[in-house]
Amino acid sequence: MNSQAFEVYIDDIDYYLSGHICDAKSKVEIDQLTLEAHRERIEQFITRFDEEELFKADFSLDSDYFYMAYLEGQPVGIIASYCGVEPFESLSILVTPSYRQRGVGKALISRWVKEVEKRGRVARYRANRENIASRRLCESLGFVAHSHIQILAKL
């Protein structure tokens, strides 16, 4: 088969937590939200991001749990967490660009991992291969690359 007839549609790496999460100490406040009660707040926040950012984060309202981060009283980040039939729980994370590198992502993921463990599930972090910042973030918290997922689309 001619490989030039295909293009990479998805090029992701799955990470799993190795041991316990490196706890993040910060001034970030985090609330658990539900789509039923907080849809407007969630939708209003994600409108700050363009389609490419939402695609890269694989962010979807079709998720099971949501966590919103606040810094200085302002919403600055969100995690959408979804459960499959397997024991894994995966996340999508968005942090407002002007608040990146301020511990927001670490605080969100630390809280998310604790909640995942309470539900008796395994935390899985999937990052696009080209999303270096996301990959560095999860690796800094103790996640280890497990597998590479590449989905090709026919041209």
Rank of each mutant, 00 (worst) to 15 (best):
M1A: 06
Q4R: 05
F6G: 03
F6Y: 15
E7Y: 12
Y9F: 15
Y9T: 13
D12N: 14
Y16W: 00
L17C: 09
L17T: 03
H20G: 13
A24D: 13
V28K: 01
L33S: 02
L33K: 07
A37F: 03
A37T: 05
R41F: 01
F49P: 00
D50A: 04
E53L: 11
E53C: 00
F55G: 11
K56H: 12
F59D: 00
L61S: 00
D62C: 01
D62F: 08
S63V: 04
F66T: 06
F66R: 02
M68K: 03
P75Y: 02
I78P: 07
S81P: 00
Y82F: 09
C83Y: 09
G84Q: 10
V85Q: 14
P87I: 09
I93Y: 09
P97W: 03
S98E: 12
V104C: 07
G105T: 06
G105Q: 06
K106E: 13
K106S: 15
L108S: 02
I109S: 03
S110C: 10
W112Y: 10
W112C: 06
W112Q: 09
E115I: 02
R119H: 13
V122Y: 06
R126Y: 05
A127G: 00
N128I: 08
E130P: 03
E130R: 12
E130S: 11
N131G: 00
A133V: 10
S134C: 13
R136Q: 15
R136M: 14
L137D: 07
L137S: 10
L137C: 09
L137E: 02
E139C: 03
G142S: 13
G142Q: 12
A145H: 12
A145I: 13
H146Q: 05
H146D: 09
S147C: 10
H148V: 15
I151D: 08
K154Q: 07
